[in-house]
């Protein structure tokens, strides 16, 4: 068995939040000789000793980068949720990009390890879901739209590569929603709406993962060998109503049928997020992951639970108004 210690690491999606943070963490590791970052756009922040290569992973150019640099470890983070642009482009980036990348990995004799950022979205969201998903569970209703479908397809291609290159160490990480300072995602944009619409009659169970923990998991997966699929989420569960109350966000219940119209209006007039079918389903039924396999494999627990990750994110919001009145009343009675 050849040594799988990462020496030359390629990070995709390096110009975006997660990619940049992972590249920065990896380059601090003296055991790693080179960190190569690729993306379609130039990075916004300095990357240190990470070598940036502007290449579109949808093109065979990525294969040249991998073979010429002798890349032995690929950390694939360039999954996009496609909220900003047209859906077709996001799908193209996600699925075709991954196919090209995996094809290049399969061809390269230097390749030892592949770490893929996937998403808990592969489990879908439905009223028939088990309360908690383990890695062995499959989606009760296979995701038929958007980002969730992309992740499912990407995992399919990764399985294909694992079959053909059994010598590779392949780790697939199914992340819950990232939440913390600096994160920009459909979820953070949703929570930042002036009045947050919730689905009338539903209160989903949510889990979050703090970027610090996400980066740590990705680092450990890169420098150590942990083959397999792993759920990644902060401990504990929050209800959407509870999260909005903790953040002091004004919210209004809207019937499910009107949600998409509501979101459409917001996008047209306020630059706010549209509600993709998968986001809507998640806002109705939620999703909870069992992280037992990850914590056992790494002998490590996330520093931030779901509640702490949310609190860290929500510290930017102000407090709600009716509390002052309540506190005055309580004080009048002689309790604080």
């Amino acid at each position: 068995m050849p040594s799988t210690a990462a020496r030359v690491v390629l990070v995709t999606g390096v110009s975006r939040f997660l990619g940049a943070r992972v590249a920065n963490t990896l380059q601090a590791d003296p055991g790693i000789e080179r960190v190569i970052g690729v993306d379609t756009v130039p990075p916004t922040a300095p990357l240190g000793r990470t070598e940036f290569v502007r290449v579109d992973i949808r093109t065979p150019g990525i294969a040249k980068v991998i073979s010429s640099a002798g890349v032995d470890t690929v950390v694939h983070l360039s999954l996009v949720t496609g909220q900003g642009g047209p859906r077709a482009k996001a799908k193209e980036l996600n699925v075709i990009g991954t196919m090209q990348l995996l094809a290049a990995c399969q061809r390269s004799p230097d390749m030892r390890k592949l770490v893929v950022r996937s998403s808990a979205a592969v489990y879908g969201s439905s009223p028939k879901d088990p309360a908690v998903f383990t890695e062995e569970d499959e989606a009760v209703e296979a995701p038929a739209h958007g980002y969730a479908k992309d992740t499912a397809e990407i995992e399919g291609y990764v399985r294909g590569l694992t079959r053909r290159r059994s010598d590779l160490t392949v780790s697939v990480l199914r992340f819950a929603n990232f939440l913390g300072p600096g994160v920009d995602s459909p979820l953070t944009r949703y929570l930042a709406m002036p009045v947050v619409p919730t689905v009338l009659g539903f209160d989903p169970r949510l889990q979050f993962v703090h970027p610090d923990d996400g980066v740590e998991v990705l680092r450990r997966m890169t420098v150590e060998d942990h083959p397999g699929r792993f759920n990644v989420a902060g401990d504990g569960v929050m209800l959407l109503s509870q999260a909005l109350r903790r953040a002091g966000r004004p919210h209004v219940p809207v019937p499910a049928q009107s949600m998409s119209a509501f979101g459409g209006l917001g996008r047209r007039f306020g630059g706010m997020p549209a509600f993709s079918p998968e986001l809507l389903r998640w806002l109705m039924h939620g999703r909870v992951l069992d992280t037992g396999r990850l914590t056992a494999e790494l002998a490590w627990r996330p520093k931030y639970g779901s509640e702490e990750a949310f609190a860290d994110f929500a510290s930017g919001f102000g407090r709600g108004a009716p509390l002052a009145l309540l506190d005055r009343l309580a004080a009048a009675i002689g309790r604080d």
């Binding site: 109350r245 909870v288 309540l326």
Partner: peptide, 24 residues
């Protein structure tokens, strides 16, 4: 009344726990 107010405050601020099944 005081404990009622305390309860109301906890509900409004979301200061309570649910388990993984959503049990409150």
């Amino acid at each position: 009344v005081a404990s009622g107010l305390a309860f109301l405050r906890r509900r409004i601020t979301g200061d309570y726990e649910v388990d993984e099944f959503g049990f409150d």
